[in-house]
Nucleic acid binder design. Structure first.
Length: 415
DNA sequence: TGTCCACTGGAACGTACGGCTT
DNA sequence: AAGCCGTACGTTCCAGTGGACA
C-alpha cells in the first residue's frame, strides 16, 4: 500500500467513525425547501389565494414579487407551487409549473427553450428564430390544453439585458390561446425594475404585487434555529454561534441564504476539526473561508484578458503605491500583452472589462474628474495584494507577469 | 467664463461559430 | 447546399462630461 492511500484510508475512517455533527447536511443547501418557512405566513397566504383559482380551472392573476436576495421569495413561491400541485393532483386538475432563473438562462431564446422543455417540446440550443420558438411554445400549450404557471426568477436581469419584448409576448399569450392558459409569476431583486417596463407590460404583470421585506436579526434567528434542528445533531450549535450567525447576516441586508451558508460551512469546518460543537469562532472562520473561496474561484476562472488587466492594476498598486487610473492600466496592459505574446484589446473593451471586474467585486472603481486633466476612473483592488500574487504566481498564463516591472511605470516614476 | 482634457459609455456593426430549416 | 438564426466577443465611432485652469 502506498503512503497516499494510507493517508486517504485514515481520512475516510475518521470521517466514518468520528462523531458527525450533521443529522442531514442536504437541508442546508441553498435549493432545499423546508417544511416550515418562519415569518413568511402572510406572503404564503397571499400568493396561495391568488393562485387558488387554478384549482377550479380558471386562470389566477399574474404576480410580481419584490425583495432583496435571501428574503425567501424563491422558497415561498416553490413552496406554494408544490402545495398547489399536490392539491390539483387530488382534485384531478392538470396544472403544470415551470421555474426559470432568468439570470442563468440569460436570453429570451433560452427562457423560451426552457418553457418549451417544460411542456415536453425539445428545442435546439441554437438555430431557430426566437419567434419560431415562441410559436411552438404557444401551439404546444394549445394542443395539450395545458394550464401553465410560469415562474420567472430574477426577471430584472433578463429585462436589463434583453428588454421587455418577451414579457410583452408572454403577458399577451392568453389572448391567442384557445385551450391552454398561463399565469406569470415574476420575481425581482431590484425594486426599481418597474421603470424598465412598458406600461402595458407592467399593468398586466403586476396584477398583484407581493413585497418581501428583509429579515431582521430575531427572525433570522428563528429561521436558523428551525433549520439547525433538522440539520445538526441536537445541542451541536451553541447559542452564541447562532446569534452571531444571524447578526452577521442581518447586517448584510437580512440575507437568509447567506446565514444558512455560514451555518453549513461552519458546520463543515467544525467537523473537519473533529469538534462536536459549532462555536462563534467557527462562524467567524466560515465567514473568512466563504470570502476567500469566492475570490480564488473568481480569479482563477477569469478570461485571459481580464487576468492581464488585473495584473496591470496589481503592478501599478505595487510599484506606484497608489490606485490606478484607466489610462495607466491600459498602457501597462498593452505592455503585458506583448510579453505573453497576445494581441491587446482596444481601450474601449478594456474599459468594459474593468467595469465587469467592478461588478463582480474584484475591483472597486470610482469615476473621477481631474478638471483640466480629463475624466477617468480610479481603480482600486478589493482583495489583498498578496492574495492576488499567490494565486497568479501559479497561473499558467500570467505567472511571469506578476513580478514584471513595466517600463511605462518606471518612466512615470522618474517624472 | 469658456476651453479643453482624458476619458466614459451608448450604439451600431463585424466576425466566427454551431446549428437550424428548406 | 444555401440561407438564416442566436450567441459570444470584439471593434469603431462618437457625443457627452466634471471641473481645473487660463
Amino acid at each position: 500500500m502506498t503512503i497516499e492511500s494510507d493517508v486517504l484510508e485514515n481520512i475516510f475512517n475518521n470521517f466514518l467513525q468520528g462523531p458527525s455533527i450533521f443529522k442531514n447536511r442536504e437541508t442546508l443547501r441553498p435549493d432545499y425547501i423546508p417544511k416550515k418557512l418562519p415569518h413568511r405566513n402572510q406572503q404564503i397566504r397571499r400568493i396561495g389565494s391568488i393562485l387558488a383559482p387554478f384549482l377550479h380551472g380558471s386562470r389566477g392573476s399574474n404576480i410580481l414579487i419584490y425583495g432583496k436576495t435571501g428574503t425567501g421569495k424563491t422558497a415561498v413561491v416553490k413552496y406554494v407551487l408544490k402545495k398547489l400541485l399536490e392539491k390539483a393532483h387530488e382534485a384531478g386538475t392538470a396544472i403544470k409549473t415551470c421555474y426559470i432563473n432568468c439570470r442563468l438562462a440569460g436570453t429570451d431564446y433560452r427562457v423560451l427553450a426552457k418553457l418549451c422543455a417544460s411542456i415536453g417540446i425539445k428545442i435546439p440550443f441554437t438555430g431557430l428564430a426566437t419567434g419560431e420558438v415562441f410559436d411552438r411554445f404557444k401551439n404546444g400549450l394549445d394542443i395539450n390544453n395545458f394550464f401553465l404557471i410560469i415562474v420567472l426568477d430574477e426577471i430584472d436581469s433578463l429585462v436589463k439585458v434583453m428588454g421587455d419584448t418577451l414579457l410583452y409576448e408572454l403577458t399577451r399569450i392568453n389572448e391567442n390561446l384557445t385551450y391552454g392558459r398561463t399565469s406569470l409569476i415574476g420575481i425581482s431583486n431590484d425594486l426599481l425594475f418597474k421603470e424598465f417596463l412598458d406600461a402595458r407590460v407592467l399593468s398586466s404583470l403586476s396584477e398583484e404585487e407581493v413585497v418581501f421585506r428583509p429579515y431582521i436579526a430575531p427572525e433570522l434567528n428563528d429561521i436558523l434555529y428551525e433549520r439547525a434542528k433538522i440539520s445538526f445533531v441536537d445541542n451541536v450549535l451553541t447559542e452564541g454561534a447562532l446569534n452571531l450567525c444571524s447578526a452577521l447576516a442581518a447586517a448584510e441586508h437580512g440575507d437568509a441564504r447567506r446565514a444558512l451558508d455560514l451555518l453549513r460551512v461552519s458546520g463543515e469546518l467544525s467537523e473537519r476539526q473533529g469538534s462536536n460543537k459549532i462555536t462563534e469562532d467557527h462562524i467567524r472562520q466560515a465567514q473568512d473561508k466563504i470570502e476567500k473561496d469566492r475570490v480564488v474561484e473568481v480569479l482563477t476562472t477569469l478570461p485571459l484578458h481580464s487576468k492581464v488587466v488585473l495584473c496591470g492594476t496589481y503592478l501599478i498598486k505595487q510599484i506606484m503605491m497608489k490606485p490606478a487610473i484607466t489610462g495607466d492600466v491600459f498602457e501597462v496592459y498593452k505592455e503585458l500583452c506583448e510579453i505573453i505574446n497576445i494581441e491587446p484589446l482596444t481601450q474601449r473593451r478594456v474599459s468594459s472589462l474593468i467595469n465587469e471586474l467592478d461588478t463582480i467585486g474584484i475591483l472597486n472603481t470610482k469615476l473621477l474628474s481631474l478638471g483640466r486633466y480629463g475624466r477617468t476612473k480610479k481603480i482600486k483592488l478589493n482583495s489583498n495584494l498578496s492574495v492576488i500574487k499567490n494565486i497568479y504566481s501559479q497561473d499558467a498564463w500570467v505567472s511571469k507577469l506578476i513580478n514584471y516591472k513595466p517600463k511605462y511605470l518606471l518612466n512615470l516614476k522618474l517624472k
